[in-house]
Simulated scan of single mutants.
Amino acid sequence: MSMQRVGTRQEWLAARLELLEAEKALTRQSDALARQRQALPWVKVEKPYRFETEQGGQGLAELFRGRSQLLVYHFMFGPDFRAGCPSCSAIADGFDGVRVHLANHDVSFFAVSRAPLPTLLAYRQRMGWSFPWASSLGSDFNFDHGVSITEAQQRAGTGGYNYQSGRHPMDLAELPPPVVETAACCGTDPAGFVRERPGLSAFARQGGEVFHTYSTYARGLDALWGMYPWLDRAPLGRNEQGMWWRRHDEYDA
């Protein structure tokens, strides 16, 4: 740990006030982005997606659980995975605390993955979570919402991700070692691992119809990582050299 410049309290206060102005500007920009996000046109969902849930087979409208809004976290957990993505798992550690508040503000929450429902529920039990999780296996839901691609798309480099068309960096024939290691810890091969991608999608229900209102991917999910807002305020910040995080039951005591 290298020592930062040491100054007087007066020097610190002057620098802190300068930073405060920048923080306020960022907050105002974030508020403006939220308004722009909410002003996006809604797109009617025409396809009859089906999901396997703990209550049986259900359509997208039923995931709203009687509320007018639905947030879906696209959790990377493919049909051949034996465990969920550790990055998605780190994000999911915050779901149970938040979803109670969402539910009392007219917003339902679901995680959705392509793994079979029994596999998802077994992993949820291992991790000590209780949020609702649905399997979209056999549905086009993941593919239509940009978080899964086919083997053919992967080979041709036409899958795209995060609104970018063409070959994605994760479609390379030789993937970086951290990706290979992460695939192994999920019990799948690297190519199969990167055919699943993380994301968040929002939906609205109005007049018996369902609308897709928003989706975000990649670093658009940064705000959902519960640890990062804390690390961004710690003395050394994120201080990352590679993928340091683990599933919460895999850290050394």
Rank of each mutant, 00 (worst) to 15 (best):
T158P: 08
C186I: 12
D171A: 14
P176F: 09
V180H: 03
A202D: 04
R195G: 07
Y214G: 05
Y163C: 10
S165R: 13
A156W: 01
E174D: 10
H168T: 12
G160Y: 00
G187F: 02
R155D: 10
R205L: 14
A202S: 13
G159L: 02
F193H: 06
G199W: 03
E209H: 10
L175A: 10
C186W: 12
Y163F: 12
A173C: 01
H212E: 00
P190K: 03
S201A: 08
G207M: 02
E209L: 12
V180I: 14
R195T: 05
V179S: 07
H168C: 11
R167V: 06
G199Q: 04
R195W: 00
M170T: 05
M170I: 02
A202R: 14
P198T: 15
L172F: 01
Q164K: 14
R197K: 07
A191K: 13
A156T: 03
S165H: 11
G207Q: 06
Q154D: 02
P198F: 04
G166E: 07
C185I: 14
G207F: 07
A183R: 09
S165D: 15
R167P: 01
G166S: 13
P176C: 09
C186E: 08
R167T: 03
V179D: 08
M170A: 05
F193E: 06
A191L: 08
M170L: 14
Q154H: 07
S215R: 12
S201N: 05
T182G: 06
